[in-house]
Simulated scan of single mutants.
Amino acid sequence: METSAARPHATLAQASRERRDVVSGEVMDEARLIRFVAGPDGQVVPDLARKLPGRGIWVAANRDAVAAAAKKNLFARSAKAPLKAAPDLADQVERLLRQRVLASLGLAKRGGDLTSGFEKVSAAISSGKAAWLIEASDGAADGRRKILALARKANPPPGLVGVFGAAELGLALGLENVIHTAFLAGRAAGRWAEDVRRLEGFSPLLPEDWREEPVEAKRKP
């Protein structure tokens, strides 16, 4: 049975989506947490999709919290079992989140929720249809400046993600030389945003060498 807060809830649906972070003790929405389970070998296993069998152990979706849970043996304490957490557990979570975010982009493209290319992305931004702007981290600065300038004028501006290179985006989307991509507003974009925000707890969404002031890194719901 999974741990949930012992406090009133407006609905049963709300109650089922709130869990307690084993590090801080704070009760929060599942969207802000990472679920872990005990693997068959006694190792702590990240369960990003929240579907693996077993009792879930929930940790805030950020690097410091996951590292603290591993260092302080909080997984074993919560499970009341001799679980072992890998020293690089936070790095594992980051890698899995990156893979999950990229895989979701591929699904979104097949579902018609993405558009790529400078002209198409510019049109999506201008029409207010772009929920997220995904820019290749190794794209040319000139093109990025132009499209970011356009994005700043949108109301509201799209969220911005710049953690993936052109080759990574191309592989995920089945295209070549992917520099500019827009995730169109809709339910799929909302689901994708949840994983993007969790990834942000482990890795900055923008490269350090992007000196210009970008649009907001997180799109408010």
Rank of each mutant, 00 (worst) to 15 (best):
residue 177 N to L: 01
residue 102 L to G: 13
residue 138 D to F: 05
residue 88 D to V: 04
residue 95 R to P: 01
residue 208 E to V: 15
residue 102 L to E: 07
residue 217 A to C: 06
residue 81 A to D: 09
residue 117 G to M: 12
residue 135 E to A: 14
residue 7 R to L: 11
residue 213 E to I: 09
residue 67 A to S: 14
residue 49 A to F: 08
residue 38 A to P: 00
residue 94 E to P: 10
residue 181 T to C: 14
residue 119 E to N: 07
residue 157 P to K: 08
residue 143 G to A: 07
residue 130 A to L: 12
residue 158 P to Y: 13
residue 166 A to Y: 03
residue 139 G to K: 07
residue 172 A to C: 11
residue 192 W to H: 14
residue 141 A to G: 07
residue 62 N to Q: 13
residue 27 V to F: 09
residue 188 A to P: 06
residue 48 L to R: 00
residue 6 A to W: 15
residue 22 V to F: 01
residue 40 P to Q: 04
residue 81 A to S: 14
residue 91 D to Q: 08
residue 55 R to L: 07
residue 149 A to I: 02
residue 180 H to L: 13
residue 70 A to K: 04
residue 16 S to R: 12
residue 97 L to V: 08
residue 191 R to C: 01
residue 37 V to K: 01
residue 15 A to E: 10
residue 162 G to M: 15
residue 40 P to D: 08
residue 178 V to R: 13
residue 177 N to S: 03
residue 179 I to A: 11
residue 138 D to P: 09
residue 76 A to M: 09
residue 45 V to P: 03
residue 109 K to Q: 15
residue 15 A to T: 01
residue 119 E to M: 00
residue 206 L to A: 11
residue 67 A to N: 04
residue 23 V to M: 04
residue 163 V to R: 09
residue 134 I to V: 15
residue 69 A to P: 06
residue 6 A to H: 07
residue 198 R to D: 13
residue 187 R to H: 08
residue 131 A to Q: 11
residue 181 T to M: 14
residue 21 D to Q: 05
residue 182 A to C: 08
residue 135 E to H: 14
residue 216 E to C: 08
residue 107 L to V: 12
residue 34 I to F: 08
residue 163 V to N: 07
residue 76 A to Y: 06
residue 90 A to E: 11
residue 221 P to I: 10
residue 157 P to Y: 10
residue 146 K to M: 01
residue 13 A to N: 02
residue 120 K to V: 04
residue 71 K to Q: 15
residue 163 V to D: 03
residue 108 A to P: 03
residue 82 P to T: 06
residue 114 L to D: 01
residue 128 G to M: 12
residue 215 V to W: 06
residue 152 R to M: 07
residue 219 R to K: 12
residue 70 A to T: 10
residue 193 A to M: 02
residue 81 A to T: 08
residue 137 S to W: 06
residue 18 E to W: 05
residue 67 A to V: 10
residue 141 A to N: 05
residue 129 K to F: 02
residue 30 E to G: 11
residue 149 A to D: 12
residue 214 P to D: 03
residue 157 P to L: 07
residue 74 L to I: 10
residue 11 T to W: 02
residue 54 G to P: 02
residue 196 V to M: 13
residue 212 E to C: 02
residue 214 P to Y: 01
residue 63 R to K: 15
residue 114 L to T: 03
residue 196 V to W: 11
residue 130 A to E: 13
residue 122 S to R: 07
residue 177 N to P: 00
residue 3 T to M: 01
residue 44 V to L: 09
residue 215 V to F: 02
residue 170 G to S: 07
residue 216 E to Q: 11
residue 190 G to E: 12
residue 197 R to W: 11
residue 119 E to H: 10
residue 71 K to A: 15
residue 65 A to V: 09
residue 20 R to L: 02
residue 52 L to N: 01
residue 65 A to G: 03
residue 207 P to R: 14
residue 28 M to F: 00
residue 2 E to G: 05
residue 24 S to G: 08
residue 11 T to N: 00
residue 66 V to A: 10
residue 150 L to E: 12
residue 29 D to F: 02
residue 177 N to G: 00
residue 153 K to R: 14
residue 209 D to F: 10
residue 192 W to S: 06
residue 103 A to G: 15
residue 136 A to W: 02
residue 38 A to N: 00
residue 139 G to V: 11
